[in-house]
């Protein structure tokens, strides 16, 4: 499968929702958010947290498996947490998403150049070269990470770590008619 075909799988499985949760950047907040999911039996599929440009706040991007429960209650319950400031659900069609993956893959000499070429097609990077292993990184749309992962698997994956996705809403393509809140 060529990497381009990933475009057709640009959307995560429908039972997953991506929530972008703006929270106060202080101790215990992640535990509150996580335990709210846990006590209602919702599985967190992936989670990424880091401070925003304003250090008082962090953004949690959480991909949640909500097949069994309505998303509305999750969002409303999250909103009740005092340290949660804003929640937006990011529709994959209206957002830009990225994830980072680090992979160590077996790369004996006879396949090494083939592997380097493959990583190059994905615009990934070779981070480290060992005697018969390569460490590769790729920051891309999560679906592209899936593709590379799949293609590397036959070579023998030794270690693999993904960060979980981060996302932001897509920007307007046309001049907006309304006023946009500053700051």
């Amino acid at each position: 499968m060529s990497p381009q075909s990933a475009a057709g799988r640009d959307v995560p499985a429908p039972r997953h929702h991506v929530l972008s949760v703006l929270v106060e950047n202080r101790s215990g907040v992640l535990a509150r958010v996580a335990s709210l999911f846990a006590r209602r039996g919702y599985n967190i599929y992936s989670l990424a947290v880091a401070p925003t440009d304003d250090e008082r706040f962090s953004r949690i991007t959480v991909v949640v498996d909500v097949e069994s429960a309505p998303l509305e209650q999750v969002v409303k319950q999250l909103n009740k947490l005092v340290n949660v400031i804003k929640i937006s659900e990011l529709d994959p069609r209206d957002s830009v998403e990225r994830e980072l993956m680090l992979v160590t893959v077996k790369a004996p000499v006879h396949v090494r150049s083939e592997l380097i070429e493959l990583v190059g097609v994905f615009r990934g990077r070779i981070l480290d070269v060992g005697h018969d292993e390569l460490a590769v990184s790729l920051d891309e749309h999560p679906a592209r990470l899936d593709d590379l992962e799949e293609l590397l698997r036959p070579y023998g994956i030794i270690d693999l770590q993904r960060t979980g996705r981060v996302a932001l809403p897509k920007l307007e393509r046309t001049p907006s008619t309304g006023l946009r809140a500053a700051g």
Binding site: E72, Q73, K76, Q77, N79, K80
Partner: peptide, 8 residues
């Protein structure tokens, strides 16, 4: 007053 009650 609690939005989470509406529709729960």
């Amino acid at each position: 007053i609690d939005p989470a009650e509406l529709g729960k």
